[in-house]
């Protein structure tokens, strides 16, 4: 028994280093193949696969831009509004408040706009999400002290389900319509603008009288929300070669993603 065992051990002893050498060699080879121009022909076929896949999505989700000059004008208006108005205001706001306060305010506004998310989850027949939003509202309004805290997310792992009427319309197959940029509100589409109007009926803040107070509250909510997002818009502009087109496309892609989830 012993000699055959010795043979087995010898074979194994030799095999292990040999396989690792082969593995290393094949890795080296494939590494250098990437830069080999003769590989381009093979790649061309694969590329067309990738292109086809990308093309399908792409063609389906282009959006018409018939009011382009209005949109570009509004885009520049909003851009200046951000850099000359909203950003300095928000920076001042950040300087005089603590992160805790701002988080609390953000949670409060998120909590009172629950009806929008709840109704739209229901309309999209997302029963589980409807339940989650209900639970979040109950927990956050009570344990979370009128919504300033978010114990639902922290202790019960109940994430907010971001739904609005525009997404509901999209869920039922209504197309974007066309692209429109509103002053102050930013990029939107015909469908999503109709959604925004509809959601106003579900938003408690819209019922505050007088209407100046309602706008004031919404403005405060915007400043507070922006305090968390400073830097995002600047990043976006820096990475874009045509910022207007980039924003339009990013808006459409993001809405598509939200509708699908």
């Amino acid at each position: 028994m012993l000699p055959s065992l010795k043979l087995l051990l010898l074979i194994l002893y030799l095999y292990v280093p040999l396989t690792s050498v082969f593995a290393a060699e094949s890795c080296l080879q494939s590494g250098s193949m990437i830069n080999d121009s003769t590989l381009n022909d093979d790649f061309a076929d694969e590329e067309f696969d990738l292109l086809d896949e990308e093309d399908d999505d792409f063609e389906n989700e282009r959006i018409a831009d018939p009011v382009k000059y209005w949109n570009i004008g509004m885009y520049h208006f909003n851009d200046k509004l951000y850099f000359w108005g909203l950003k300095p205001l928000t920076k001042g706001y950040i300087a005089v408040t603590s992160k805790k306060i701002r988080s609390g305010v953000k949670n409060f506004f998120s909590n009172i706009t629950m009806p929008i998310r709840l109704v739209n989850c229901l309309l999209q027949l997302k029963i589980k999400n409807t339940g989650t939003e209900t639970a979040r509202f109950v927990i956050n309004s009570t344990i979370g002290i009128l919504g300033f805290g978010d114990p639902a997310k922290k202790y019960y792992a109940l994430e907010p389900k971001d739904e609005d009427l525009g997404q509901t319309f999209g869920f039922y197959g209504i197309g974007n319509g066309f692209y429109i940029v509103w002053p102050f509100l930013g990029p939107s589409s015909l469908r999503d603008s109709a959604g925004l109007l509809g959601d106003r009926f579900l938003n408690p803040v819209s019922y505050v009288k007088p209407w100046e107070a309602s706008i004031g509250i919404t403005s405060y909510k915007t400043v507070n929300r922006t305090s968390f997002k400073i830097g995002d818009y600047e990043t976006f502009k820096e990475t874009a070669i045509s910022p207007y087109e980039a924003l339009k496309d990013a808006y459409i892609q993001n809405r598509r993603k939200k509708i699908n989830e």
Binding site: S30, I34, E54, S242, D249, N254, K257
Partner: peptide, 23 residues
């Protein structure tokens, strides 16, 4: 060529390649 590499990045549903393709 035997190696996995990234050809697109999608952040929050926004595809880098598609976004630059539009631009």
């Amino acid at each position: 060529g035997g190696i996995w590499s990234v050809y697109d990045v999608r952040a929050e549903g926004v595809s880098l390649v598609r976004n630059y393709r539009t631009q």
